[in-house]
Design a protein around this nucleic acid. Structure first.
Lengths: 201, 201
DNA sequence: GTACAATAGGAGGCTGAGTTCCGGTTCCAT
DNA sequence: ATGGAACCGGAACTCAGCCTCCTATTGTAC
């Protein structure tokens, strides 16, 4: 994302303070958006970074651009977590691990939760990242369904949506609370004793 | 809320056009907030009512006041629905009816869903109304738990929260979608075959 | 029919948040 | 050490949305 020293072609490598500030802005943005959600203010980001607003805007031309950079980061984390969960032997446990991890991430980052809930994947880059995330989730789901532990009548796109809904609660409550909600939903998702669902959309 | 003709004391009854516009503003507000959520604009409300902004502000001194009036209405509806559900013979069916109705209301009114999700009961009046709603819900829940159909380890406050989470999905998707989510959650709430929940907060 | 007071309407003020701009400063190449 | 390009900072600008104010209008009592 930021060319290191001795990189390509004509432009020389960026100055040391620029690199330092880029990182600081990124960190400050993460903190601000995690705390206040999408309503976090650019002035606040600048303040946390110990930098003027002008500097923030030099590194990210727009609030949305900063948001995108942070979001891509988070989605990457989620994909990594998903891949790791796919390696867990027990299919059901792999599946629940993904859900729990997703809930944790949303609980820890209000901005992330709001972005997922709003379903706004404006940029192509975000859209691509989200597609990858869905792919990963789908793999784990199919495995759990094949093993007979996840009910077969849940559609692939149901789970991300369900998680998204949960995130609301997750954001506004303490951890023990959403642990319970997650448990309820998981019980609803188990294959045994499930009642018939209405047909997929 | 609006004194009819021949009401109390010194002030004479309001003019006919004032009454007419009051209703129009209320209806326009309901429509606007239902469509755009809390971000609906006062100018839009005025436009829909076929009235100037000034008129809107004469009837409701503030955006929040208009919101409150509408919200109280909706909560009243919800309470009525809850009382009706309490009369259904089968306890479990009564419980599911409440949840379904709540989901329907939120799907139909984005502003209502956002208010519930945000959990902002700023005014005393709203707070009181919400308390009444919770009371009603609690009654139906206790009955379903006593009958052994609703799992006993769900706390009273869990259900409103869970609904709130669902509403997110409800708003952004079509009806068949959230019907399925609701079914999943309900399966998770059934007493039979439930796994142990973490302790209440 | 007339007077009066309440009501309607919408241009403009006010505020807050995102963004721009430019003088001063700092780092890097020579 | 020094020239100059890149970078920094934050005051000022822009724009959108809530709200106010003042004039014209309209309903109601006598």
């Amino acid at each position: 994302m930021f060319p290191g020293p001795a990189t390509t072609n004509p432009p020389r490598s960026p100055r040391a303070d620029a690199v330092r500030n880029h990182v600081r802005v990124l960190e400050a943005g993460a903190a601000a958006f995690a705390e206040y959600g999408l309503d976090a203010q650019m002035d606040d980001v600048a303040g946390r970074a110990g930098v003027g607003v002008g500097t923030v805007y030099r590194h990210f031309p727009t609030k949305e651009a900063l948001l995108e950079a942070l979001l891509l980061d988070r989605i990457g984390e989620a994909v990594a977590a998903g891949r790791k969960a796919a390696l867990i032997e027990d299919p059901w446990e792999g599946f629940t691990t993904i859900l729990r991890r997703a809930a944790e991430m949303q609980a820890a980052d209000r901005g992330f939760a709001e972005l997922l809930a709003a379903g706004l994947a404006r940029t192509d880059a975000v859209q691509a990242a989200m597609a990858e995330l869905h792919e990963t989730t789908a793999t784990v789901m199919r495995r759990a369904q094949a093993a007979g532990s996840l009910r077969a009548d849940v559609a692939l796109e149901d789970v991300p949506n369900l998680m998204c809904g949960l995130s609301r609660v997750v954001g506004s409550s303490d951890r023990p609370a959403w642990e319970r909600y997650l448990a309820i939903v998981l019980d609803g998702l188990r294959a045994d004793r499930a009642t018939a669902l209405p047909p997929a959309a």
